[in-house]
């Protein structure tokens, strides 16, 4: 079967810094795949390269069989690849509803009430606050808005960059519950996390990133039980 997303031997540089070295992996339709690794390993750089915000010097990225490595970011979103960036990056001065509308920017027809309802069903808190300015939401609500906003484009693949970052444990649980729900409803997810334990618990497969390279890979359970991962990331 053809992979939904195929990343092959990409190399990304920040000036002279070689941040991503020959990284390859894939995501199949319907999977939750996680990319774990310590701070600075290159996880965000990888996602930004897939989204077209950064360019790989060599190798290729294929989505749905089409090469997307040279496309500008807005064309990549149009093809069904959405990202919830690290640190949420919601539009703080715009209302909750406007943020969601921006999420649907690629769908030219405008946003129907049903479309918004679909997201509000998952995130009832956002419905109550739809006219509120996003900057006044709590951290957890902002993360939900960031996820809801990305879902508005009806992506075939949703990439999440550390959705649990900076959230209280109870909110982290909630976010992972949402990820599980999205998975069950058929959404394909590429999840970047530092919280390896939580990430491995929801993932079908996982890759471990270390200083710009992918080291281990395997099913979520295999990695959760691997001694190396336990030592390095699970505090065991």
């Amino acid at each position: 079967m053809e992979h939904l997303l195929k990343v092959e031997n990409i190399n990304v540089y920040y000036g002279a810094i070689h941040a991503i070295k020959d990284v390859s992996f894939h995501v199949d339709a319907g999977e939750v795949v996680t990319l774990i690794g310590a701070n600075g390993a290159g996880k965000s750089t990888t996602l930004q390269t897939i989204s077209g915000l950064l360019r790989s010097r060599s190798g290729g990225i294929e989505f749905n069989g089409e090469s997307i490595g040279r496309l500008p970011p807005h064309r990549i979103v149009e093809r069904g690849l959405a990202q919830v960036p690290e640190g949420r990056r919601i539009f703080l001065q715009m209302s909750v509803q406007e943020n969601l509308e921006m999420g649907a920017f690629t769908r030219r027809g405008g946003v129907s009430e049903e479309e918004l309802e679909r997201v509000f069903e998952q995130f009832p808190r956002l419905k109550e606050r739809r006219r509120q300015i996003a900057g006044t939401l709590s951290g957890g609500e902002q993360q939900m808005l960031a996820i809801g906003r990305a879902l508005m484009s009806r992506p075939q693949l949703l990439m999440l960059d550390e959705p649990s970052m900076g959230l209280a444990p109870i909110l982290v649980e909630q976010i992972f519950e949402i990820i599980g729900k999205l998975h069950r409803s058929g959404t394909t997810i590429l999840l970047v996390e530092q919280n390896a334990q939580m990430a491995l618990s929801v993932a079908d497969r996982a890759y471990v990133m270390e200083t710009g390279r992918i080291g281990l890979s395997g099913t979520g359970r295999e990695l959760a039980e691997s001694d190396l991962v336990k030592k390095a990331y699970l505090g065991g």
Binding site: S51, G52, L53, P72, P73, H74, V77, E78, A82, Q83, P85, R89, I90, F91, L92, Q93, M94, E98, E101, M102, G103, F105, T106, G110, R149, A150, S153
Partner: peptide
């Protein structure tokens, strides 16, 4: 739609690009 996209770009160009806005 374009006016809101303009506000989105003025706040955060990277995030705007991730929305599919042609900055």
């Amino acid at each position: 739609r374009m006016g809101k996209a303009m506000r989105a770009c003025s706040e955060d160009k990277g995030a705007a690009q991730l929305m599919g806005i042609n900055v």
